[in-house]
Simulated assay, not measured.
Amino acid sequence: MNGRELISWNMRRLRGEKGISQERLANEAGVDRTYVSRLERMKENPSIGILEKIANTLGAHVSELLLEPVDGEKLMQVPAGRKPKEKRS
Rank of each mutant, 00 (worst) to 15 (best):
Val70Phe: 09
Val31Thr: 06
Met1His: 03
Leu14His: 12
Lys53Trp: 04
Ile54Ala: 02
Val36Asp: 02
Leu6Gly: 00
Gln22Met: 11
Leu58Ile: 13
Asn27Gln: 09
Pro69Tyr: 00
Val62Phe: 02
Gln77Trp: 09
Ser47His: 03
Arg41Pro: 01
Leu75His: 02
Glu23Tyr: 04
Val36Gln: 01
Lys87Tyr: 01
Val31Ser: 07
Arg15Pro: 13
Glu73Lys: 00
Thr34Gln: 07
Leu58Tyr: 09
Ile48His: 11
Glu5Asp: 06
Glu5Trp: 04
Asn27Asp: 03
Ile50Thr: 14
Asp71Ser: 06
Gln77Glu: 15
Lys18Gly: 10
Arg82Ala: 12
Leu6Gln: 00
Gly59Gln: 06
Lys85Cys: 03
Leu66Gln: 13
Gln22Asp: 05
Gly59Met: 07
Glu64Phe: 03
Gly81Leu: 07
Ala29Trp: 05
Lys43Ile: 08
Pro84Leu: 08
Gln77Cys: 05
Glu68Asn: 11
Ala80Arg: 15
Gly16Ser: 08
Asp32Asn: 14
Glu44Leu: 14
Ala60Ile: 05
Asp32Gln: 13
Glu44Arg: 15
Glu17Arg: 10
Glu73Gln: 12
Lys53Cys: 00
Lys43Glu: 13
Met76Trp: 07
Asn45Arg: 12
Ser21Arg: 06
Asn2Tyr: 06
Lys83Leu: 11
Val78Asp: 04
Lys18Leu: 13
Pro84Lys: 04
Val62Tyr: 11
Ala26Ser: 10
Glu52Trp: 02
Lys83Cys: 05
Asn45Gln: 07
Glu73Ser: 02
Leu66Glu: 14
Thr57His: 00
Ile20Gly: 05
Lys43Asn: 04
Ser89Gly: 11
Val78Thr: 15
Ile48Ser: 07
Val70Ile: 12
Ser37Trp: 13
Ala29Met: 11
Pro69Ile: 01
Lys83Ala: 12
Ser8Phe: 00
Gly3Thr: 15
Asn56Phe: 05
Glu28Asp: 15
Ser47Lys: 05
Leu14Asp: 06
Gly3Gln: 15
Lys18His: 09
Glu23His: 08
Thr57Met: 00
Pro46Phe: 01
Leu6His: 01
Asn2Ile: 08
Arg15Val: 09
Asp71Val: 08
Arg4Phe: 07
Leu25Ile: 13
Lys85Tyr: 10
Arg38Glu: 15
Val62Gly: 02
Glu64Arg: 13
Ile20Asn: 00
Val31Trp: 10
Met42Gln: 12
Pro79Asn: 15
Leu25His: 08
Tyr35Ser: 10
Gly30Val: 14
Val70Gly: 02
Leu65Tyr: 10
Lys85Leu: 10
Thr34His: 03
Asn45Pro: 01
Arg82Val: 05
Gly30Tyr: 13
Val78Met: 12
Gly72Gln: 08
Gln22Trp: 02
Ser8Gly: 00
Val70Thr: 14
Glu23Val: 09
Ser37Pro: 01
Pro84Ala: 07
Gly16Asn: 11
Asp32Cys: 05
Glu86Asn: 05
Gly59Cys: 09
Leu14Ala: 15
Lys53Ser: 10
Leu65Cys: 04
Gly3Pro: 03
His61Glu: 10
Leu58Lys: 11
Gly81His: 02
Gly16Glu: 08
Asn10Cys: 11
Ile48Tyr: 04
Arg38Tyr: 11
